Amino acid sequence: MTFSQVSRATGISRFSVRAWTTDITPSPSKTAQCPVRDGQPVPTLSRPDYAYLLGLYLGDGCISEGRRGVHALRIACGDAWPGLIEACARAVAAVMPQNKVQRVRAGGYTSVVSTSKHWPCLFPQHGPGPKHLRRIALAPWQQRIADEHPWELLRGLVHSDGCRITNWTTRTVAGSRKRYEYPRYFFTNTSTDIIRVFTDTLDAVGVEWKATKRAAGAVNVSVARRASVALMDEHIGPKH
């Protein structure tokens, strides 16, 4: 019988009948399984990559709903730091390995984008409106990952809404003016909850910090003490 005759006799699509003549093994489903089940992350979830991606999401990420319950995760990365774009794409691919990762160019930045029905499961902080206008709190399982991989979370936060800069000052030594340079880290956000996630994690790893309020409700956290900057340099370093 022809493929069409078999299709009409059985009610099975002609495409499936033709495919079975060459491969009778069912193709594995390409639909990603939910990485969070019964309120716990699955053992296969890459926890260091997730901690880093969580920091990026809290800083410069958003989740938008599309058709049929599919959500798009978007992380905006400045084009001035191509290494950051690649690190973000690797983290997204590691956390959701069955889904494609795209790079969407815009004016001065690139959005790293991946679609899945399960991004809201991984980031329960998702909700309507800007993050600074709603409560942001880590779920217990997220906090455990943050406790296990605090430097990865801090690295994601600094790579999104932070920076490492070199300050300088001058002093008079033996009658002549000399210039001194010293590095420091900054993290700025308008969400007091996200600021608290950042500073609590700094406390957990022994980094000293100071916070000052800026215009439009933003809070600026600075790390300037030499020992703390050295710790940040060891685990984070400047964006590239």
Rank of each mutant, 00 (worst) to 15 (best):
N220Q: 10
A19F: 03
D233A: 02
Y109W: 04
L45M: 06
S228H: 01
I145D: 01
L84F: 02
Q142C: 04
S4H: 08
V173N: 08
A80K: 01
A227F: 01
P238W: 10
E86T: 02
D60N: 09
H235P: 07
R196P: 00
E234N: 06
L133G: 08
G11W: 12
H235K: 07
P41Q: 09
M1G: 12
A51S: 06
R214I: 00
M1Y: 06
P35Q: 05
H118I: 00
P48D: 01
T192W: 12
T110D: 01
V229S: 08
P35T: 14
K239I: 08
C62M: 14
T192D: 11
V6C: 12
A230Y: 02
Q142E: 05
R164Q: 15
P128G: 08
A51I: 02
V42C: 08
F198S: 04
I194R: 10
V92E: 05
P150Q: 04
S27W: 10
V36I: 13
S16T: 15
L54H: 03
R184C: 04
T115L: 13
P26L: 15
H126S: 06
G217D: 14
P97M: 14
E86H: 06
Y180D: 12
R177Q: 14
Q125L: 01
P120N: 02
Y185V: 12
N167D: 10
R74G: 00
Y50F: 13
L73A: 00
R196M: 01
L154P: 00
D203L: 10
P48T: 04
N167I: 12
F187W: 14
I24N: 09
P140R: 01
G69D: 09
P28Y: 13
